Simulated scan of single mutants.
Amino acid sequence: MLALDHGSARTGVALSDPSGTIATPLPAILRVGARKGRRELHRLIVEREVERIVVGLPVGLQGHDTDQTREARAFAATLQEAVGPEIPVELYDERFTTRMAQAAGGEADEDSRAAAVLLEEWLRLDRP
């Protein structure tokens, strides 16, 4: 599983272990909307044999869409088109993940730590 904390300048990246229990932050991808950033993301997906992608959805505190929410939805839709139906792309509410990443600290950049928090939460969900 791959988690992305999408941003126009930097996109945080985290990857789960094969068992789907541990999330590890990876280096952020710069300008994922640009050609070089898209290539780097595609390379990562192929090399790590990603089976599912979770994109953080920055819903407003009151649960409403914001400009960032709309950007994340558009990014996820474009990514789904690029990877095809073989790799599902899901959106997941990322409220408070950046604050949790800041509080936890660590060596990785903040955006990727936030992606790791997002992925850890997503992995803990009960799934059928």
Rank of each mutant, 00 (worst) to 15 (best):
L2P: 02
L2A: 08
L2C: 05
L2T: 01
A3K: 11
L4R: 12
H6C: 06
G7T: 02
S8Q: 10
S8A: 11
A9Q: 11
A9I: 08
R10I: 08
T11G: 01
T11F: 12
T11W: 08
T11M: 11
G12F: 07
V13P: 03
V13K: 07
A14V: 08
A14Y: 03
A14M: 13
L15C: 05
L15P: 00
S16K: 08
S16E: 08
D17Q: 13
S19H: 09
G20Y: 13
G20C: 12
G20A: 08
T21Q: 12
I22P: 00
P25C: 13
L26Y: 11
P27F: 06
A28T: 04
A28I: 03
L30M: 14
R31I: 01
V32W: 06
V32N: 02
G33D: 11
A34V: 12
A34E: 14
A34N: 11
A34L: 15
R35F: 09
G37T: 10
R39T: 07
E40Q: 14
L41I: 13
R43C: 04
I45Q: 00
V46N: 05
E49Q: 09
V50G: 05
E51C: 06
R52N: 04
R52I: 04
R52Q: 11
I53V: 10
I53G: 02
P58V: 04
P58D: 05
G60V: 09
L61M: 15
Q62S: 07
G63M: 13
H64T: 02
D65Q: 12
T66W: 03
T66A: 07
D67Q: 09
D67A: 14
T69S: 15
E71Y: 04
R73W: 08
F75Q: 09
A76T: 10
A76C: 09
T78K: 14
T78E: 14
Q80Y: 04
Q80C: 04
Q80P: 07
Q80W: 11
A82M: 15
V83C: 07
G84W: 12
G84H: 07
G84P: 02
V89P: 04
V89H: 03
V89M: 08
L91Y: 05
Y92W: 13
Y92P: 00
D93C: 06
D93A: 13
D93F: 14
E94D: 10
R95A: 05
T97Q: 05
T98G: 05
R99H: 10
M100C: 02
M100W: 00
M100Q: 15
A101I: 13
Q102M: 12
A103I: 10
A104M: 14
G106I: 10
E107G: 11
A108W: 01
A108N: 11
A108H: 07
E110W: 00
D111S: 13
D111K: 15
D111T: 02
S112V: 02
R113Y: 05
R113V: 07
A114N: 00
A115E: 01
A115Y: 01
A115K: 03
A116S: 09
A116C: 01
E120A: 15
E120N: 06
E121I: 03
W122A: 09
W122G: 00
L125Y: 06
L125H: 06
L125E: 14
R127W: 03
P128E: 10
P128T: 03
